[in-house]
Structure formats: structure tokens, C-alpha cells
């Protein structure tokens, strides 16, 4: 498989005349994890949705291998984990997994205890935490070349966060993964590269001290 590169450039996004994103460049190669950080309301989720194609900005240029793509989800090139639950409630989990999981990861996914325990159930029968865990895993293991994860570590226990990080690293050997979360220490841990969104533009973070310089954090924990 070739090493595709996803590039997002010149995104302009406004809400009610307020400029959210205006000077954006973000790229991600298959084989790497890019961490996206930023304060509340800075446009992290919006940027991921623009790349995925479910949010239409004033202008954007998104390409894979320099070929422009109108919507990331067309042809299943990009998958997106939204912050909310997204699985249909009345279809069995094994049926839902069958259409979304990458065949090269099927054995690994189906051997997970969360799948083993609940594959015969419907999403509506799971607790909030179980459902979120399953949805996150189904997105990470999905067929897409590029995976966008919006707050995968929020509302999960530290043990589960560690498990997610291991799986993200493993899947990132063949996929490009962009991950954002307010638990920045998890992002610093899992990402190969960090990009910060501040004042509507992207800044490359070369070391954790840059996060203090851009006033994203006051100190490193």
C-alpha cells in the first residue's frame, strides 16, 4: 500500500460573522499520528468535520495525494469519531461491525473483550461508557485510510485510555490518524507530531514548552 498524505489547506470558517478558522494548514501521512490541540471553541472539532465533509466552510482545500477531495467520507477515505454517540440503536453490534471494520483488523477487533461480551446486543442495550468504548474502537479499526478522532479519551477510564493509545499506535502503522482531546498529556503521549490551533490558525509544536509559549497550558504536568 502506498503512503498517502492527507493535506488540508486554506480553510476559512465563520459562524455569525465570527472568524473561527482562517489560516489553517494540516497534513497527515499514513503511518503517523498527528495530535491537534487548542482551547475550547478554537475550532478543533470544526476542522475535523470540515476535513470529513460534514461541515461546509467558506473555503477549503482538502486533498489526498494531491488529488482534491470534496468530502472526506466519499469512497470511505476518511472516518470520523464524533463527540456524540453515532451507532444506530436498533441494529446488532456484530452487524454494524461487519460493514465498518477493516478486514485486516477483523480478527483483532473481534477478539476484544468489549466485542466478545456485547456483539449479540444492540447499542441501546449498552451503558454509556461501554457504547463510547465500542464506538471509538469501531472508528479506529474502520476501513478508512485516514481516521479523525474527536475526544477519544474523554469519559473513559485511564486503563481504557492506555488501551486506546496502544491500538491507535498499532493502526497508525497503516493509517494516518489525527486525534484531538483536552487531555493533552494523552495526546503528547500518543502523537508523533503536535499541531496547535490558536487564533484561528495552526502552529507546529516542536516541544511541549511551545504549548506554554502559546498560552495553551501554564505548566507541564
Amino acid at each position: 500500500m502506498g503512503q498517502y498524505i492527507l493535506k488540508t489547506d486554506s480553510v476559512h470558517l465563520e459562524f455569525d460573522g465570527r472568524k473561527i478558522l482562517q489560516d489553517i494548514y494540516l497534513d497527515c501521512r499514513q503511518g503517523e499520528v498527528v495530535g491537534l490541540l487548542g482551547r475550547n471553541g478554537c475550532g478543533k472539532s470544526s476542522l475535523l468535520r470540515v476535513i470529513f465533509g460534514s461541515l461546509k466552510p467558506t473555503y477549503k482545500h482538502v486533498s489526498i495525494d494531491d488529488k482534491h477531495i470534496y468530502k472526506g467520507y466519499d469512497d470511505g477515505r476518511v472516518a470520523y469519531l464524533p463527540q456524540h454517540n453515532y451507532l444506530p440503536q436498533n441494529i446488532k453490534i456484530q452487524s454494524l461491525a461487519g460493514t465498518i471494520i477493516d478486514p485486516q483488523f477483523t480478527d483483532e477487533f473481534t477478539s476484544l473483550s468489549i466485542y466478545q461480551d456485547h456483539h449479540h446486543k444492540k447499542p441501546g442495550q449498552l451503558s454509556g461508557g461501554e457504547l463510547r468504548q465500542l464506538e471509538t474502537l469501531m472508528c479506529i479499526y474502520s476501513r478508512a485510510d485516514f481516521i479523525l478522532l474527536d475526544e477519544p479519551f474523554t469519559h473513559v477510564s485511564p486503563v481504557q485510555a492506555e488501551m486506546f493509545k496502544g491500538i491507535i499506535r498499532k493502526c497508525a502503522k497503516v493509517k494516518g490518524i489525527i486525534v484531538t482531546d483536552h487531555q493533552y498529556y494523552n495526546i503528547l503521549d500518543v502523537a508523533d507530531r503536535i499541531v496547535l490551533i490558536t487564533d484561528g490558525s495552526t502552529k507546529a509544536i516542536n516541544n511541549p514548552d511551545d504549548l506554554i509559549r502559546y498560552r495553551y497550558i501554564s505548566h507541564i504536568i
Binding site: Y80, Y86, Q89, S142, R143
Partner: peptide
Amino acid sequence: YNSTKTFFYFRNAGYG
């Protein structure tokens, strides 16, 4: 609202 949320599943599965 619930229907628009589940659109993400179908899009992730590669269905238009």
C-alpha cells in the same frame, strides 16, 4: 437529531 447523529455511522462505513 438522533437520525443526523447516526449518519456518521453510514458515512464511516462508506455509504453515501
